[in-house]
Structures are given as C-alpha cells and as structure tokens.
Simulated scan of single mutants.
Amino acid sequence: MAETAHSDQPLLNTPLHAEHVALGARMVPFAGYNMPVQYPTGIMTEHNWTREHAGLFDVSHMGQAFLVADDKSHETAAKALEALVPADVLNLKPNQQRYSQLLDENGGILDDLMVTRVGAPGHEGWLYLVVNASMKEQDYAHIQARLPQGVSLNRKDDLALMALQGPSAAAVLGKLSPEAADIPFMMSADVQIDGIWCHVSRSGYTGEDGYEISCKAGDATKLWNTLLADPEVKPIGLGARDSLRLEAGLCLYGHDIDTTTSPIEAGLNWSIQKRRREEGGFPGAARIQREVKEGAARVRIGILPEGRAPAREGTVITTPDGREVGIVTSGGFGPTVNGPIAMGYVSKDVSAIGTDLHLVVRGKPLPAKVAAMPFVPHRYKR
C-alpha cells in the first residue's frame, strides 16, 4: 500500500474524489493520486466490515486499456500479448479473465495485471487489461513498443473502476443487476446497473467473493452512491485494502514482486498454464522453465511473528543462530488473524512450513515461524 506519488508531478484525482472528501476520508498521496486511506470509522472497522458484509473500494487509479487486433482475430491479439506475459491468453474463453505478469528479459516482473478476453459482440480480437496505477505509464510504453503491426493498445483514461468485496457483494449486486450475481469466478459480463453501462468481473484483491466494476468516469458518482445506498455496503480505504490482501497472501507490486523477483520465486507458478511452461516463448522463459523444474533458490513465504510486534517491510530474517536468510516484503497487523503477519523471501532451505526464524525488529531478534498462506482462507465463488 505504501506506493508513493511522483513528487515532481501534481497529484491526480479519481472521478470519485469529491465523494471521498464528503464522506470525511483521510486522503493521502498514492501512486500519483489523491486516495482515501481510511474513513472516519478507521481501518480496523473497515477491514472487519468487508470480511462480514460488503466493502466498496475506489480503484479508479488503476490503468485500464484494450489491446485490439485489426483483423478482429482473438489469436492475433493473444499471440501479441503472449510475447510479453507467461499466461495462456490464446485459450481464454470469451469473457474469461486471467492474472499474469509483464516480464523483462531476465524473467523479472515489470508489473502484474489482469487480462480479459472481451466477449461483447463486435469486439472480436479485443483484450481488456487492468494494470497497476504506479506502473501504468511504463507498462503502456513497454507494451506499445513491442506490439506487432496490426495490433494496437488503446488506453481508456475515461473509465472509472470500483471493487465491491465481501460475503454480501453478490446479494447487493444481484438486487441491482440479477445477471451480475450469476457471473462465475474470473469471468465477466457487460451489464446495466441503475441504467449505467458497466463491465463487471467476478474478482478482486481481498480474498473475499466480490466484483470489480468498470464504468464511464461520468457515471462513477451515480454508481458509487447507488451501491452505498445498500445498508450492507460501506466505503473502504487503502489501509484496509492492504490488510485484507496481506491476510489473503496476495502480492503487492513494488513490494512483494518487482524486477528482482520471478513468478516462480513469488509462488505464482499457478498463473503460468501448462502449455506456456512447456512451450515458453515469453521473456525470461529459460530461467522460469528452469525454476519450474528445479525450484527457485529463494521463495516467498508467509510468516507468523510470535508476540504482538509487527515486522514491517525491510525487516531482516535470520535463522535462530543468526544466519541472514531473507527479508520481509509486506508486514503488519492482521485484524482477522488478530495478530501480526508478514510475507517475505527466504532461501529455499528454511522455507518449510513450521520452520523457526528470527525477525530483526529495531535491532532485536524476535521469534517467528514460517506459516501457510493465505492467513485467512479465500472465499472466492468457485
């Protein structure tokens, strides 16, 4: 969550900025935008509300774009993107969504992103991409520079994006758009909500069942307030978004994954489908295929510190006898776990669940154990 603004640039506002201010949100600079970190009730209350009801997040700072093949062929668009990411894009069904990573030549992660095969009639050969706010300019430039002739990238800065997450999300959305409640996990549909065109996917970054909803920027305020009118829904800021994703064991770009980490080190093997593992054909394929076969020298792990002191990003990890074996990349208090939790990278020999470790917090080694992730079970609608 600790992405920072580019200080030489004025901060941007999302289309929902005035709504956050009116709701009494504490606004902070995040990835070049003014974003709500919390509302008056506080991060803990917001976190718990999302776990028990439905939380509404403004994620309009994320980058939304379309990859479009002139020949209207899904194969053309898919092959263009498969030259940049390790996911199987070719075999996506219409309206199906997949998580992947943009890779550099060494198999390091330039960004992670969501890819959807657009299923709307007349949009054959279209892929919908959602990238991280802090990386969108670099991502767009990187993709644009590597596209073959006949495939173009259309960025959509005129779209807003919000996430409705939690066990009540389907019931809330179902009242407004019955077909939205029936969307399966990692699938999407174009629906009308209160007369507003929306592209809705059954996905999110909290570990809970829920949706990400894209709409035109001009419709964002009406949609936001329509969703908030349901007593099950409350607005949630970046603080709880971060504690929820940490409990769900999900990576945050720029912290848990970056150009120094490969998808295999990060434990993202599941996001590289069998065909791509075997065929390669993406940046850094030789390294990634080797790591799939032999295992990576270091791996991302879950960590449960003993006691109540949280271990923050950058905390050094050692063995109980003082040998330095890794570093914490995300850490904090887990409200649902009711204690400190962390993620980080350690050498493979100390990565087994239950292994004793020490976390050096303010110069003091504090005991911890390697833990299974997610810390809180995922509740996606499978």
Rank of each mutant, 00 (worst) to 15 (best):
V59P: 14
M186G: 11
G204K: 03
T319L: 05
P86T: 09
P148M: 08
P365G: 13
T50C: 09
I257Y: 03
P231K: 08
Q97I: 12
C215W: 05
A69Y: 14
Y140G: 12
A171V: 12
E19N: 07
R202Y: 07
T206G: 04
S168K: 13
G55C: 04
Q38K: 14
P231G: 07
E279S: 15
Q149P: 03
E232T: 00
I257D: 11
V233I: 02
D139P: 09
H378F: 11
G55M: 06
D58M: 08
L110G: 00
D104N: 15
L252A: 08
K136D: 10
H74R: 11
E105L: 03
L147A: 09
N48M: 14
Q192R: 08
G32F: 07
L227S: 09
M27Q: 10
G339K: 04
G280I: 09
A240Q: 04
L12P: 01
Y345V: 03
T4N: 05
T260P: 00
E75R: 11
G339M: 08
P178M: 11
R379Y: 04
M27C: 03
V233D: 04
N338M: 15
V346A: 11
E313A: 12
P94F: 09
A145N: 13
I257V: 14
P10M: 03
P94D: 13
L56S: 10
K216C: 00
G254R: 03
W197R: 09
Q192H: 05
L246K: 00
G322D: 12
I236T: 12
P283D: 06
A309V: 14
A352F: 02
T319Y: 06
V191G: 11
C251Y: 01
V37K: 07
F57D: 14
L129G: 05
L359G: 09
H74Y: 12
G307Q: 14
G295S: 10
T206A: 06
G326D: 13
P235S: 11
I264Y: 04
V131T: 15
D58K: 04
V376G: 05
V115N: 10
D58Y: 04
G281A: 07
A169N: 03
D219P: 04
Q38C: 15
G314R: 00
I264H: 03
E265T: 02
K175S: 13
G174C: 13
K156T: 13
T221G: 08
